[in-house]
Simulated assay, not measured.
Amino acid sequence: MKTFLLSLLVLAALCGTAMAREVNVNGLWRGSLYGSDLQARVEQDGHNVKAEVVVHAMTGETNVYHVVGAIFNGHMYVVHGSGHVFEGDAKGDAIRGVLTTKGGSKLELEATRVPLKPGGKSPAAAGSSASGPATKASRRPG
């Protein structure tokens, strides 16, 4: 019985240490895909992650995707309701990984964190035009 309790205590300590070191991905992230500008406003609650991803295409079209997923030790896995899946790693101010589309195409993606403005607000929250001009918009359900 002592061995069992000791094992539980060690496991709890290890889990607590891993959670304390979890990468924080809250905030605004930017990247690009085939010339299109990507922005993701990410919210993290423990291991749960959700994001609104806005894609500004070179054609002027804007598409919005809502994704949900999880992060464990910096490794992220998020999905969109249509079947797109992103899996990658967050380290410091970069997220790198692979987007697998619902059709099976694999696309390498990299995003960097947008620095906070003075006062702790992201550029979009502070009122600047973080999304840039969108002349023509179509919103996909997500």
Rank of each mutant, 00 (worst) to 15 (best):
S7Q: 09
S7F: 13
L11T: 06
A12M: 11
C15G: 06
G16K: 06
A18S: 12
A18L: 13
A18D: 07
M19S: 15
M19E: 15
A20Q: 01
A20S: 05
R21W: 09
R21F: 12
V23P: 07
V23M: 12
V23H: 10
N24M: 01
N24F: 00
N24L: 00
N24E: 01
V25H: 01
V25Y: 00
N26V: 01
N26D: 12
L28A: 08
L28R: 13
W29P: 04
G31T: 12
G31H: 12
S32W: 05
L33D: 03
Y34C: 06
Y34S: 11
G35P: 05
G35A: 10
G35I: 09
G35D: 09
S36F: 05
D37A: 13
A40N: 08
R41C: 12
R41S: 15
V42Q: 02
Q44L: 03
D45K: 14
D45P: 05
G46Q: 08
G46P: 01
H47T: 14
N48H: 14
V49I: 06
V49E: 01
K50L: 06
K50R: 13
A51G: 04
V53K: 03
V53S: 02
V53H: 00
H56I: 08
M58N: 08
T59H: 08
E61H: 09
E61L: 13
T62A: 11
N63E: 13
N63G: 14
V64S: 07
V64Y: 10
H66N: 15
H66G: 12
V67C: 11
V67E: 11
G69Y: 00
G69A: 01
A70V: 04
A70S: 10
I71N: 01
I71A: 00
I71G: 00
F72C: 09
F72V: 15
F72R: 10
F72P: 04
N73R: 15
G74H: 07
G74E: 04
M76W: 06
M76L: 15
Y77D: 14
V78C: 01
V79H: 09
H80N: 02
H80Q: 03
G81I: 09
S82E: 10
G83F: 05
H84G: 00
V85N: 05
V85K: 07
V85M: 04
F86W: 03
E87N: 10
E87V: 11
E87W: 06
G88A: 04
G88N: 06
D89A: 05
D89C: 03
D89T: 11
D89H: 08
D89E: 09
D89Y: 08
A90Q: 00
K91E: 10
G92L: 02
G92H: 03
A94K: 15
A94P: 07
I95N: 02
I95H: 03
R96L: 07
R96C: 06
G97K: 05
G97P: 07
G97T: 05
V98F: 01
T100Q: 06
T101L: 05
K102R: 15
G103N: 07
G103H: 05
G104T: 04
G104C: 04
S105R: 15
S105F: 15
K106I: 02
E108C: 01
E108G: 07
A111R: 13
T112Q: 02
T112A: 02
T112C: 00
T112L: 03
R113N: 03
R113W: 04
R113A: 09
V114Q: 13
L116H: 07
L116K: 14
L116Y: 13
K117P: 06
P118A: 11
